[in-house]
Amino acid sequence: MRTGRFLRRFARHRLAVVSALLLLVLAVAAAAAPWVEHWLGVEATGISLLDRFGPPSALHPLGTDELGRDVLVRLLYGGRVSLFVGVAAALASAVIGTGIGLLAGYFGGRLDDLLMRVTDGLIALPLLPLLIVLGAIDLTRLGIPPEVAGAEDASLLRIVVLVALFGWTTVARLVRGATLSARRRDYVRAAVAMGAGSRRIMLAHILPNVAAPAVVATTLTVGNVILLESVLSFLGLGIQPPLPSWGNMLTNAQELVGTAPLLAVWPGLLIFLTVIAVNLLGDGLQDALDPRVVGKR
C-alpha cells in the first residue's frame, strides 16, 4: 500500500523515471561487459599498436583508443568501476551515517553532543586537500600488509574507504534530525512503555521512518563520488591503469583532445549523464518520499 503510493508519486516525476531507466540500462550494460566483449570478439586489455585511434567499425562500434583497445568495451568496464566506486562509497557512508545519526538522535545527551561535535569537526575540514594527503600516505606504515596495499585494485578500495570516512556526515545529520522527531511519535512512546529494548526500537520502529532522507542523500552521494573519482584521476590519484574508469579515461583523453576528441567525449558524456540521472533520481525520490512536498501539490 505504502509502496504503491510511493510508486505512483514517483511515476509523476517524469525526469526521475527516465533517469532511473537510464541508470538501469547503464548498470546492466556495465554488468554485461564481459558478454559484450565476448560477443564482439575483442578484449578490453587487447593492445594492438597497429590499430591506434581506429574509427568506428563493425568490430569496434566506437572505434579504438590510443593503444588500439576497443573503446566501447573499455567504457563498459570503466562503468563497472565508476559505478561500483560510487555505489559502494555511498552505501558505506550511508551505513556509517545512519548508525551515528540513530545513536545520536535516540540517546541524545552527552553521546549526541559528542557525535555531533565530531560531525561538525569533519564538516569543517577541507575535503579535497585531505583526500590528497590521505591518498598519498603510505598504507604499509599503518600496518596494512604490502600485499593488500599494493594490490591492483587497491586504488579502488582506497577511494571507497576515504569517501566513506568523510562522506557520512550529511546522512548522519539528516538521520539524527529524523530520529529526534520520530522518537516523539506515539508509537515509539508506546513501544518504550511496553518495555521494548533500545535496539529493537531503533531498528524496527525508528529506522523505517528515517530511511527516506537517508535514501535521498545516499543517492546524491553516488553522483558526487563519481565526479570526485574523475577529479582524483585528473590529479593522478584516482583509479590506476590498467583498470579503466570513466574518470581516468577522460583524464587520459584530454591531452589528445585535438586528435581524437571522441575519446574525451564518451567518458565525459557518460559521467555527465550518470551524475545528472542520479541527481534527478534523488530529486524524484525526495518528492515521492516526502509527503509534505507532494501533499501540497
Binding site: T45, G46, I47, L49, E66, L67, L235, G236, L237, Q240, P241, P242, T251, N252, E255
Partner: peptide, 16 residues
C-alpha cells in the same frame, strides 16, 4: 609514476 600518461601507456604495452 602515477599520472604520467606516457609512461602508463608504455607500461600497458609492455604488460601485454
Amino acid at each position: 609514476t602515477a599520472g604520467n600518461r606516457s609512461r602508463e601507456v608504455l607500461q600497458q604495452v609492455l604488460q601485454a
